[in-house]
Design a protein around this nucleic acid. Structure first.
Lengths: 147, 147
DNA sequence: GTACTTGCAAAGATTTTGCTTCCAA
DNA sequence: TTGGAAGCAAAATCTTTGCAAGTAC
Protein backbone atom coordinates (compact mmCIF):
# COMPACT_ATOMS: atom_id res chain seq x y z
CA UNK A 1 0.00 0.00 0.00
CA UNK A 2 1.45 3.36 -0.93
CA UNK A 3 -1.36 5.84 -0.76
CA UNK A 4 -4.57 5.36 1.16
CA UNK A 5 -5.89 2.11 -0.13
CA UNK A 6 -3.95 1.87 -3.37
CA UNK A 7 -2.16 -1.33 -4.12
CA UNK A 8 0.60 -0.38 -6.53
CA UNK A 9 1.95 -2.68 -9.11
CA UNK A 10 5.69 -2.73 -9.49
CA UNK A 11 7.44 0.63 -9.66
CA UNK A 12 6.83 2.55 -12.84
CA UNK A 13 10.55 2.96 -13.49
CA UNK A 14 11.13 -0.77 -13.40
CA UNK A 15 8.09 -1.31 -15.60
CA UNK A 16 9.35 1.18 -18.17
CA UNK A 17 12.84 -0.29 -18.27
CA UNK A 18 11.43 -3.74 -18.84
CA UNK A 19 9.50 -2.33 -21.76
CA UNK A 20 12.65 -0.93 -23.30
CA UNK A 21 11.83 2.71 -22.59
CA UNK A 22 14.89 4.88 -22.25
CA UNK A 23 15.17 6.25 -18.70
CA UNK A 24 16.32 9.84 -18.50
CA UNK A 25 16.72 11.57 -15.16
CA UNK A 26 13.70 13.74 -16.04
CA UNK A 27 11.52 10.67 -16.50
CA UNK A 28 12.83 9.09 -13.32
CA UNK A 29 11.98 12.23 -11.39
CA UNK A 30 8.50 12.52 -12.87
CA UNK A 31 7.45 8.93 -12.31
CA UNK A 32 8.72 9.06 -8.74
CA UNK A 33 6.56 12.11 -8.09
CA UNK A 34 3.52 10.50 -9.69
CA UNK A 35 3.92 7.38 -7.61
CA UNK A 36 4.61 9.19 -4.37
CA UNK A 37 1.90 11.82 -4.73
CA UNK A 38 -0.80 11.82 -2.07
CA UNK A 39 -3.44 13.45 -4.22
CA UNK A 40 -4.14 13.88 -7.90
CA UNK A 41 -1.80 15.97 -9.96
CA UNK A 42 -2.41 17.77 -13.20
CA UNK A 43 0.42 18.44 -15.64
CA UNK A 44 1.23 21.88 -14.27
CA UNK A 45 1.19 20.75 -10.64
CA UNK A 46 3.46 17.87 -11.55
CA UNK A 47 5.80 20.30 -13.25
CA UNK A 48 5.86 22.54 -10.17
CA UNK A 49 6.77 19.58 -7.97
CA UNK A 50 9.45 18.46 -10.38
CA UNK A 51 11.00 21.92 -10.52
CA UNK A 52 11.73 21.74 -6.80
CA UNK A 53 14.21 18.99 -7.55
CA UNK A 54 15.29 20.02 -11.02
CA UNK A 55 14.62 23.68 -11.77
CA UNK A 56 15.62 23.20 -15.40
CA UNK A 57 12.97 20.65 -16.24
CA UNK A 58 10.66 21.87 -18.96
CA UNK A 59 6.89 21.83 -19.00
CA UNK A 60 6.91 20.19 -22.41
CA UNK A 61 8.86 17.27 -21.00
CA UNK A 62 6.09 16.78 -18.46
CA UNK A 63 3.45 16.66 -21.17
CA UNK A 64 5.52 14.27 -23.24
CA UNK A 65 6.21 12.00 -20.31
CA UNK A 66 2.53 11.88 -19.40
CA UNK A 67 1.64 11.07 -22.99
CA UNK A 68 4.20 8.25 -22.95
CA UNK A 69 2.84 6.81 -19.71
CA UNK A 70 -0.68 7.00 -21.06
CA UNK A 71 0.39 5.26 -24.26
CA UNK A 72 1.80 2.46 -22.12
CA UNK A 73 -1.37 2.33 -20.05
CA UNK A 74 0.56 3.01 -16.86
CA UNK A 75 -1.40 6.03 -15.70
CA UNK A 76 -5.08 6.86 -15.52
CA UNK A 77 -6.27 10.22 -16.71
CA UNK A 78 -9.09 11.72 -14.68
CA UNK A 79 -11.25 14.82 -14.89
CA UNK A 80 -12.75 14.69 -11.41
CA UNK A 81 -16.06 16.00 -12.67
CA UNK A 82 -14.40 19.13 -14.07
CA UNK A 83 -14.19 20.55 -10.59
CA UNK A 84 -11.43 22.78 -11.84
CA UNK A 85 -12.21 23.34 -15.50
CA UNK A 86 -10.50 21.41 -18.24
CA UNK A 87 -7.60 20.11 -16.19
CA UNK A 88 -6.59 16.49 -16.51
CA UNK A 89 -5.39 14.67 -13.45
CA UNK A 90 -3.09 11.69 -13.42
CA UNK A 91 -2.48 8.78 -11.12
CA UNK A 92 -0.41 5.64 -11.42
CA UNK A 93 -2.58 2.69 -12.33
CA UNK A 94 -3.20 0.39 -9.43
CA UNK A 95 -4.00 -3.27 -9.49
CA UNK A 96 -7.57 -2.53 -8.50
CA UNK A 97 -9.73 0.12 -10.11
CA UNK A 98 -11.41 2.56 -7.80
CA UNK A 99 -14.20 5.08 -7.94
CA UNK A 100 -13.63 8.81 -7.51
CA UNK A 101 -16.14 10.94 -5.63
CA UNK A 102 -15.68 14.68 -6.04
CA UNK A 103 -17.39 16.96 -3.55
CA UNK A 104 -18.73 19.97 -5.41
CA UNK A 105 -18.72 22.04 -2.24
CA UNK A 106 -15.37 21.44 -0.56
CA UNK A 107 -13.48 19.92 -3.47
CA UNK A 108 -12.44 16.84 -1.54
CA UNK A 109 -11.80 13.73 -3.60
CA UNK A 110 -12.75 10.43 -1.98
CA UNK A 111 -11.89 7.07 -3.45
CA UNK A 112 -13.26 3.64 -2.91
CA UNK A 113 -13.23 0.20 -4.34
CA UNK A 114 -16.37 -1.74 -4.99
CA UNK A 115 -17.12 -5.28 -5.98
CA UNK A 116 -20.19 -3.95 -7.77
CA UNK A 117 -17.85 -1.95 -9.96
CA UNK A 118 -15.94 -5.13 -10.74
CA UNK A 119 -19.20 -6.85 -11.64
CA UNK A 120 -20.18 -3.93 -13.83
CA UNK A 121 -16.90 -4.23 -15.74
CA UNK A 122 -17.63 -7.88 -16.26
CA UNK A 123 -21.07 -7.06 -17.58
CA UNK A 124 -19.64 -4.55 -20.06
CA UNK A 125 -17.11 -7.06 -21.36
CA UNK A 126 -19.63 -9.85 -21.58
CA UNK A 127 -22.88 -8.26 -22.70
CA UNK A 128 -21.45 -5.57 -24.94
CA UNK A 129 -18.57 -7.63 -26.25
CA UNK A 130 -16.33 -4.71 -25.38
CA UNK A 131 -12.69 -5.21 -24.40
CA UNK A 132 -12.02 -2.64 -21.69
CA UNK A 133 -8.55 -1.16 -21.48
CA UNK A 134 -9.40 1.64 -19.09
CA UNK A 135 -12.54 2.43 -17.18
CA UNK A 136 -13.59 5.28 -14.95
CA UNK A 137 -16.36 5.96 -12.52
CA UNK A 138 -16.61 9.50 -11.25
CA UNK A 139 -19.39 11.07 -9.24
CA UNK A 140 -19.94 14.68 -8.28
CA UNK A 141 -22.11 15.75 -5.38
CA UNK A 142 -21.90 16.40 -1.69
CA UNK A 143 -19.65 14.44 0.63
CA UNK A 144 -20.70 13.27 4.07
CA UNK A 145 -19.12 16.31 5.70
CA UNK A 146 -20.82 18.83 3.41
CA UNK A 147 -24.32 17.55 2.86
CA UNK B 1 -37.59 7.91 -26.75
CA UNK B 2 -35.66 10.48 -28.77
CA UNK B 3 -32.28 9.08 -29.51
CA UNK B 4 -31.37 5.43 -29.38
CA UNK B 5 -32.56 4.35 -26.01
CA UNK B 6 -32.69 7.71 -24.28
CA UNK B 7 -35.77 8.61 -22.36
CA UNK B 8 -35.83 12.40 -22.29
CA UNK B 9 -37.38 14.37 -19.54
CA UNK B 10 -39.49 17.32 -20.58
CA UNK B 11 -38.06 19.63 -23.19
CA UNK B 12 -35.18 21.73 -22.01
CA UNK B 13 -36.86 24.93 -23.13
CA UNK B 14 -39.92 24.26 -21.03
CA UNK B 15 -37.74 23.29 -18.10
CA UNK B 16 -35.78 26.51 -18.35
CA UNK B 17 -38.87 28.70 -18.59
CA UNK B 18 -40.33 27.06 -15.51
CA UNK B 19 -37.13 27.91 -13.69
CA UNK B 20 -37.43 31.55 -14.63
CA UNK B 21 -34.56 31.52 -17.12
CA UNK B 22 -34.93 34.12 -19.86
CA UNK B 23 -35.36 32.47 -23.25
CA UNK B 24 -33.55 34.16 -26.06
CA UNK B 25 -33.73 32.85 -29.62
CA UNK B 26 -30.07 31.83 -29.30
CA UNK B 27 -30.81 29.69 -26.28
CA UNK B 28 -33.86 28.19 -27.92
CA UNK B 29 -31.76 27.24 -30.93
CA UNK B 30 -28.95 25.76 -28.86
CA UNK B 31 -31.12 23.64 -26.60
CA UNK B 32 -33.04 22.33 -29.60
CA UNK B 33 -29.80 21.22 -31.21
CA UNK B 34 -28.60 19.58 -28.00
CA UNK B 35 -31.82 17.68 -27.61
CA UNK B 36 -32.07 16.64 -31.23
CA UNK B 37 -28.44 15.66 -31.68
CA UNK B 38 -27.78 12.05 -32.54
CA UNK B 39 -24.26 11.96 -31.15
CA UNK B 40 -22.24 13.89 -28.64
CA UNK B 41 -21.38 17.48 -29.37
CA UNK B 42 -18.56 19.58 -28.06
CA UNK B 43 -18.88 23.36 -27.82
CA UNK B 44 -17.35 24.04 -31.22
CA UNK B 45 -19.45 21.41 -33.00
CA UNK B 46 -22.55 22.80 -31.36
CA UNK B 47 -21.58 26.26 -32.55
CA UNK B 48 -21.10 24.99 -36.12
CA UNK B 49 -24.55 23.41 -36.06
CA UNK B 50 -26.11 26.55 -34.67
CA UNK B 51 -24.48 28.74 -37.29
CA UNK B 52 -26.37 26.88 -40.00
CA UNK B 53 -29.56 28.34 -38.63
CA UNK B 54 -28.25 31.62 -37.29
CA UNK B 55 -24.94 32.65 -38.85
CA UNK B 56 -24.59 35.51 -36.40
CA UNK B 57 -24.54 33.40 -33.25
CA UNK B 58 -21.34 33.82 -31.30
CA UNK B 59 -19.10 31.12 -29.93
CA UNK B 60 -19.09 32.80 -26.54
CA UNK B 61 -22.85 32.48 -26.36
CA UNK B 62 -22.47 28.75 -26.83
CA UNK B 63 -20.02 28.51 -23.94
CA UNK B 64 -22.23 30.66 -21.74
CA UNK B 65 -25.33 28.66 -22.58
CA UNK B 66 -23.56 25.39 -21.83
CA UNK B 67 -22.35 26.78 -18.52
CA UNK B 68 -25.91 27.82 -17.69
CA UNK B 69 -27.30 24.38 -18.53
CA UNK B 70 -24.60 22.75 -16.47
CA UNK B 71 -25.36 25.04 -13.55
CA UNK B 72 -28.97 23.92 -13.75
CA UNK B 73 -27.93 20.30 -13.96
CA UNK B 74 -29.71 19.85 -17.28
CA UNK B 75 -26.77 18.56 -19.28
CA UNK B 76 -24.05 16.03 -18.64
CA UNK B 77 -20.48 16.88 -19.49
CA UNK B 78 -18.43 14.00 -20.84
CA UNK B 79 -14.85 13.45 -21.91
CA UNK B 80 -15.30 10.16 -23.66
CA UNK B 81 -11.94 8.89 -22.45
CA UNK B 82 -10.14 11.86 -24.05
CA UNK B 83 -10.49 10.25 -27.42
CA UNK B 84 -10.06 13.66 -28.92
CA UNK B 85 -7.91 15.55 -26.45
CA UNK B 86 -9.35 18.00 -24.00
CA UNK B 87 -12.73 18.43 -25.62
CA UNK B 88 -15.84 18.30 -23.48
CA UNK B 89 -18.96 16.73 -24.88
CA UNK B 90 -22.48 17.52 -23.83
CA UNK B 91 -25.75 15.69 -23.79
CA UNK B 92 -29.15 16.48 -22.34
CA UNK B 93 -29.68 14.65 -19.09
CA UNK B 94 -32.03 11.73 -19.41
CA UNK B 95 -34.17 10.14 -16.80
CA UNK B 96 -31.89 7.14 -16.68
CA UNK B 97 -28.12 7.33 -16.48
CA UNK B 98 -26.16 5.38 -19.02
CA UNK B 99 -22.64 4.16 -19.53
CA UNK B 100 -20.42 5.36 -22.38
CA UNK B 101 -18.05 2.98 -24.13
CA UNK B 102 -15.47 4.65 -26.35
CA UNK B 103 -13.70 2.50 -28.92
CA UNK B 104 -10.07 3.56 -29.04
CA UNK B 105 -9.70 2.16 -32.55
CA UNK B 106 -12.73 3.36 -34.52
CA UNK B 107 -13.90 6.13 -32.22
CA UNK B 108 -17.43 4.79 -31.96
CA UNK B 109 -19.33 5.65 -28.81
CA UNK B 110 -21.72 3.00 -27.53
CA UNK B 111 -24.14 3.58 -24.71
CA UNK B 112 -26.01 1.27 -22.45
CA UNK B 113 -28.02 1.20 -19.31
CA UNK B 114 -27.33 -1.22 -16.54
CA UNK B 115 -29.11 -2.14 -13.36
CA UNK B 116 -25.69 -2.86 -11.87
CA UNK B 117 -24.85 0.77 -12.45
CA UNK B 118 -28.01 1.74 -10.57
CA UNK B 119 -27.01 -0.56 -7.72
CA UNK B 120 -23.52 0.96 -7.69
CA UNK B 121 -25.01 4.43 -7.34
CA UNK B 122 -27.04 3.19 -4.40
CA UNK B 123 -23.92 1.78 -2.80
CA UNK B 124 -22.09 5.09 -3.17
CA UNK B 125 -24.94 7.02 -1.58
CA UNK B 126 -25.38 4.52 1.20
CA UNK B 127 -21.92 3.32 2.14
CA UNK B 128 -20.02 6.53 1.49
CA UNK B 129 -22.76 8.87 2.69
CA UNK B 130 -22.28 10.78 -0.55
CA UNK B 131 -25.16 12.64 -2.19
CA UNK B 132 -24.67 12.17 -5.92
CA UNK B 133 -25.71 14.97 -8.21
CA UNK B 134 -24.03 13.65 -11.34
CA UNK B 135 -22.28 10.41 -12.05
CA UNK B 136 -20.37 9.08 -15.03
CA UNK B 137 -19.10 5.73 -16.15
CA UNK B 138 -16.82 5.76 -19.17
CA UNK B 139 -14.76 2.94 -20.56
CA UNK B 140 -12.14 2.98 -23.31
CA UNK B 141 -11.12 -0.12 -25.22
CA UNK B 142 -12.08 -2.10 -28.27
CA UNK B 143 -15.66 -2.47 -29.42
CA UNK B 144 -17.09 -5.73 -30.70
CA UNK B 145 -16.41 -4.76 -34.30
CA UNK B 146 -12.77 -3.83 -33.71
CA UNK B 147 -11.43 -6.37 -31.28
C1' DG C 1 27.65 6.16 -32.79
C1' DT C 2 22.91 6.45 -33.23
C1' DA C 3 18.40 6.95 -32.25
C1' DC C 4 15.72 8.90 -28.93
C1' DT C 5 14.87 12.79 -25.63
C1' DT C 6 15.13 17.46 -24.00
C1' DG C 7 14.60 22.47 -24.03
C1' DC C 8 13.10 26.43 -26.21
C1' DA C 9 10.07 29.12 -28.80
C1' DA C 10 6.17 29.37 -31.13
C1' DA C 11 1.76 27.91 -32.54
C1' DG C 12 -2.85 25.65 -31.66
C1' DA C 13 -6.84 24.73 -29.35
C1' DT C 14 -10.21 25.53 -25.91
C1' DT C 15 -12.41 28.44 -22.66
C1' DT C 16 -13.06 32.84 -20.04
C1' DT C 17 -13.48 37.92 -19.25
C1' DG C 18 -14.54 42.97 -19.90
C1' DC C 19 -17.37 45.88 -21.79
C1' DT C 20 -20.86 47.89 -24.78
C1' DT C 21 -25.16 47.24 -27.03
C1' DC C 22 -29.39 44.89 -27.28
C1' DC C 23 -33.59 42.56 -25.96
C1' DA C 24 -37.07 39.52 -23.11
C1' DA C 25 -40.26 39.94 -19.69
C1' DT D 1 -38.04 49.95 -18.05
C1' DT D 2 -34.56 47.33 -16.61
C1' DG D 3 -31.77 43.44 -15.47
C1' DG D 4 -30.01 39.96 -17.82
C1' DA D 5 -28.00 38.21 -22.36
C1' DA D 6 -25.43 38.62 -26.74
C1' DG D 7 -21.63 40.06 -29.52
C1' DC D 8 -16.94 41.42 -30.10
C1' DA D 9 -12.25 41.52 -29.05
C1' DA D 10 -8.82 40.28 -26.20
C1' DA D 11 -6.82 37.47 -22.70
C1' DA D 12 -6.03 33.33 -20.15
C1' DT D 13 -5.35 28.33 -20.06
C1' DC D 14 -3.86 24.14 -21.40
C1' DT D 15 -1.47 21.37 -24.83
C1' DT D 16 1.14 20.33 -29.05
C1' DT D 17 4.78 20.93 -32.64
C1' DG D 18 9.30 21.95 -35.09
C1' DC D 19 13.84 21.98 -34.63
C1' DA D 20 18.60 22.27 -32.74
C1' DA D 21 21.40 20.43 -29.11
C1' DG D 22 22.13 16.87 -25.79
C1' DT D 23 22.21 12.12 -23.87
C1' DA D 24 21.09 7.00 -22.77
C1' DC D 25 22.32 2.75 -24.22
Amino acid sequence: MDVEGHVSRRPLEQELVSRGVRMTHQRRLLVQIIQGAAGHLDAIALWQCAKDQDPTINKVTVYRTLAMLKRHGLVDELDLMHLDGGKHYYEAKTTRDHIHLACLKCGRIQEFESSLFEKLKGQIEREQQFRISTVRVEAGGLCDRCK
